[in-house]
Amino acid sequence: MNIFRLAGDMTHLISVLVLLLKIYATKSCSGISLKTQELYAMVFLARYLDLFSDFISLYNTVMKLVFIGSSLAIVWCMRYHRVVRRSYDRELDTFRYWILVGACFTLALVLHEKFSFQEVFWAFSIYLEAVAILPQLVLLQRSGNVDNLTGQYVFFLGAYRAFYILNWIYRYLTEPRFTRWISCVSGLVQTALYADFFYYYFISWKNNAKLQLPA
């Protein structure tokens, strides 16, 4: 564990807490893409198949349970909670994400570290996470102004993988045999997808104005 990875995990945790706060405090999920939440639930379920077979550390196990639990809870809330579900932007959140799921799974069948059930699903989860934010970014552009908590949620979600890139650079420099190309390339793509969001987020912060994404 190094400081970059810890910062990345904490930033990721903060993004989840901000989203839970927004939904719980405002009893609303307006501006949040259910499809991105469902993609993230798939990412965590596919990535943490080793939850019960490989014990790495208490921290690792607890964080996996937190990410799986929170993503499923948010999906449940947005689908079935009688108050929250009414504020879901159903007509704006129309990204056909099964194309993304199919493409990522196909890529994982071709490109993986080892051809085993767990490794293919791990690679699938890495590729899927890289594009999981797309429905959310499309929804933000369609829904015009973005409320603060939603903007912060997306910001932290994007920042966490940027910390992971620093972690991979650090590990590459300090650990003799560390190579993880699948994570690194996907992590770069994932972070690059946030580039324009980060730009408009910075502008809104600098001008102390509402976050506006161009349609």
Partner: peptide
Amino acid sequence: VITDSAKDEL
């Protein structure tokens, strides 16, 4: 089972 599996990251 404790492993130092390459997948030690979240």
